[in-house]
């Protein structure tokens, strides 16, 4: 079975929200269990968590602004790369993502491009 890589991007509706340390710990455990379940199927590739604070955005004329909060209000909270047989399987993985417990949050599912010059 041929496998492709997909990136699941966690989009939080409001990156300014402050969670209590206890809440953070619960989310962390839930996220680790979710990723552990994918890894147990040998379908986890890599993952990156992105703390909300201190982000910067560089614009085309070298203008630096604080925070990733531009035209789109959403903040990316992290992303993981998985192996899946189809986009539908990757979507199934995404459905289990604890980020979706937050109203308005989404998970974007994107196939990793091969080196075919379509960038």
């Amino acid at each position: 079975m041929s496998m492709d890589e997909y990136v699941l991007i966690f989009r939080h509706e409001d990156g300014q929200k402050v969670a209590s340390p206890e809440q953070m710990q619960i989310w962390m455990k839930q996220t680790m269990d979710w990723i552990g379940g994918i890894a147990a199927q040998n379908k986890f590739v890599s993952g990156t968590g992105l703390p909300f604070d201190g982000a910067k955005v560089v614009g085309h004329n070298g203008v630096v602004t604080n925070g990733p909060f531009g035209d789109i209000k959403e903040t990316i909270g992290g992303l993981i790369t998985v192996r899946a047989e189809s986009v539908d399987e990757a979507v199934e993985f995404a459905k289990g993502c604890p980020v979706l417990q937050g109203e308005g949050n989404t998970v974007e599912v994107r196939k990793v491009a091969k080196n075919d010059g379509t960038h």
């Binding site: 949050n105 989404t106 994107r110 196939k111 379509t118």
Partner: peptide, 9 residues
């Protein structure tokens, strides 16, 4: 790749 899906709450 430019295509994909978005999963919401």
């Amino acid at each position: 790749a430019p295509t994909g899906r978005i999963v919401s709450t």
